[in-house]
């Protein structure tokens, strides 16, 4: 289907990055010098979600700039399935631990999933080392909903159990609403609707009383929905999320931000075996965030620049610890064994 003269899907990824690369390379002698030894070929990225989705766009934008510092192409492979476990277990697990194989996951939902269902691999086999963004969960209703504020919802939730749409139970946004219920005494019944598309539909069509989802997705739906609460320390998108308050501000709680967080992970063995290579990866990864070309690419791909948020190994570890703790706390509810 390659029509002559037009970029194809994978060539596009490589091409756009190559153009970006030409501009910035000379000014980064460190990256250049190290790149002679590593990498000497393309870096493969396993993406455990489907092609054309949010992770895909996010990855295109990021690797397009990262490429010029790492001086190599990225070859993404999309292996969705079993909430990301196919990507980790069937594909990443079989790849060589040589720093040429990365996985681009979503820390929040993945870690929660591992809490509720122990995977067949040892979760210490992989390390998240590069966080790209943090997208907080939010509470939203359809444009026609009678609920105008989060207080309306809490008040109603004290009278009857409200049905809440969510993309899946083991999701940071689901935890957020459970925590709200715990704090206020309102009753919520989480209904997993398999995916963001159905979750938005559930709220818009009124089958659910309201829904919870990552706020980036909700903001993109414009006037079809209305956001009422954000599970973060600050509503970074302001107007685009209808100036909704944050849970901690509004209710005086101290809930850690309930984030979806896309991040690169690597085999732990690769870091131990090739510390030099890993250093190149980690250093060049960080450089992307200060590159002036990155923001326009994110904005062009309709991403939320406010959610772009660098994090290294330590930040990722701290985040994982939070998620594991809170996941354990709500585990009985999430596994139906309460």
């Amino acid at each position: 289907m390659a029509i002559p003269g037009t970029p194809t899907r994978r060539a596009f990824l490589k091409g756009s990055a190559a153009a970006a690369g030409a501009a910035g390379l000379a000014s980064h002698p460190l990256a250049f010098a190290l790149a002679e030894a590593f990498p000497s070929r393309n870096v493969n990225v396993v993406v455990p979600t489907r092609e054309g989705g949010g992770a895909d766009r996010n990855l295109r934008a990021f690797t397009g700039v990262w490429k010029k510092y790492l001086k190599t192409n990225f070859e993404p492979g999309f292996y969705p399935g079993a909430s990301g476990r196919v990507g980790y277990e069937v594909y990443m697990g079989k790849r060589k631990a040589d720093c040429y194989n990365l996985i681009f996951g979503n820390m929040g939902p993945e870690l929660l999933n591992w809490v509720v269902q122990k995977p067949t691999f040892d979760i210490n086999d992989y390390v998240y080392f590069g966080r790209v963004d943090t997208d907080p969960g939010c509470v939203f209703v359809g444009a026609k909903s009678p609920f105008k504020s989060i207080d309306d919802i809490v008040a109603e939730g004290k009278k009857r159990k409200l049905n809440v749409g969510t993309s899946r139970l083991a999701h940071p946004a689901s935890i957020g609403i459970l925590a709200l219920g715990e704090h206020t005494g309102a009753q919520f019944n989480l209904i997993p609707l398999s995916g963001g598309k159905n979750t938005v539909a559930g709220a818009v069509t009124g089958e659910m009383d309201f829904s919870v989802l990552t706020s980036g997705t909700v903001a993109a739906r414009g006037d079809a929905v209305r956001t009422l609460l954000v599970f973060n320390d600050k509503n970074l998108l302001g107007e685009r999320l209808d100036n909704a308050p944050t849970m901690n501000d509004h209710f005086g709680t101290s809930l850690p931000p309930m984030l979806s967080s896309r991040a690169f992970a690597i085999h732990t063995a690769a870091i131990e075996k090739y510390p030099d290579r890993f250093k190149v990866l980690a250093d060049t990864f960080k450089q992307v965030f200060t590159d002036p070309e990155y923001k326009p690419v994110v904005v062009k791909a309709k991403g939320n620049w406010e959610y772009i948020n660098y994090g290294g190994i330590e930040e990722c570890k701290a985040y994982a610890k939070d998620i594991f703790e809170i996941g354990e706390r709500f585990k009985p509810y999430l596994t139906g064994k309460s």
Partner: peptide, 14 residues
């Protein structure tokens, strides 16, 4: 060869 042209060159299936 036709299959190669369609599936690998054009559609870039893996």
């Amino acid at each position: 060869l036709g299959g190669y042209l369609i599936f690998i060159l054009a559609f870039e299936t893996r």
